[in-house]
């Protein structure tokens, strides 16, 4: 019960922050990638905003090395770990790892957490977000490792380690 409350609260804060930055859902008005050094990054959304939002919701965040952050929350038998690579203040590589008891189906809170990440680059596009959600959910349900290129981003789903699901979104090389 505590777990669900904590995670839903987290999502609320994050998505509210994201929404404020992306006022439109029209592609003609909003770029979906922005060049940052040798890769592409998620436009506008600052890495610090996501980290601050995670911290505000009780995730201890540590800067493990330059431009690399890790935020980890353990709630009961669940571990939620977000890692963020920052380039020029923006996000070039973000992943979440959810660790749970191996024999249990992912709960709604676990799926919410994963889908929050999946949606980060395309928050403004409700339809594409839903497609991405479906793709992620399908792969997790099928218990398959998967890769896809979506716009300028590479998406990875790793389910082959029992008890853990990793979803990673990396800005493609330019």
């Amino acid at each position: 019960m505590l777990m669900v409350a904590a995670i839903v609260g987290l999502l609320g804060a994050l998505v509210a922050g994201v929404g404020a930055y992306l006022p439109t859902n029209r592609y003609q008005a909003t770029a979906t990638t922005v060049p940052c050094r040798r890769v592409v990054c998620i436009p506008v959304l600052k890495a610090s905003a996501v980290i601050d939002a995670l911290k505000a919701k009780g995730h201890p965040c540590e800067q493990e090395r330059d431009h690399h952050w890790k935020c980890e929350l353990m709630v009961g038998t669940l571990t939620f770990e977000t890692t963020i690579e920052e380039v020029e203040g923006l996000i070039s590589d973000v992943s979440v790892l959810v660790v749970r008891p191996p024999d249990e189906e992912p709960t709604e809170a676990v799926m919410d957490y994963l889908l929050w990440l999946a949606a980060l680059p395309y928050t403004a596009d409700e339809a594409l977000t839903e497609e991405i959600n479906d793709w992620v959910v399908d792969r997790i349900e099928a218990d398959e490792d998967a890769e896809a290129e979506i716009g300028g981003y590479n998406y990875y789903v790793v389910t082959s380690n029992p008890g853990s699901i990793r979803l990673r979104v990396i800005g493609a090389l330019r």
Binding site: Y27, D125, E147, A148, G151
Partner: peptide, 12 residues
Amino acid sequence: GRERPSIESRDV
């Protein structure tokens, strides 16, 4: 406007 991204699944 801009072409809409699609999901290009790789051989997984």
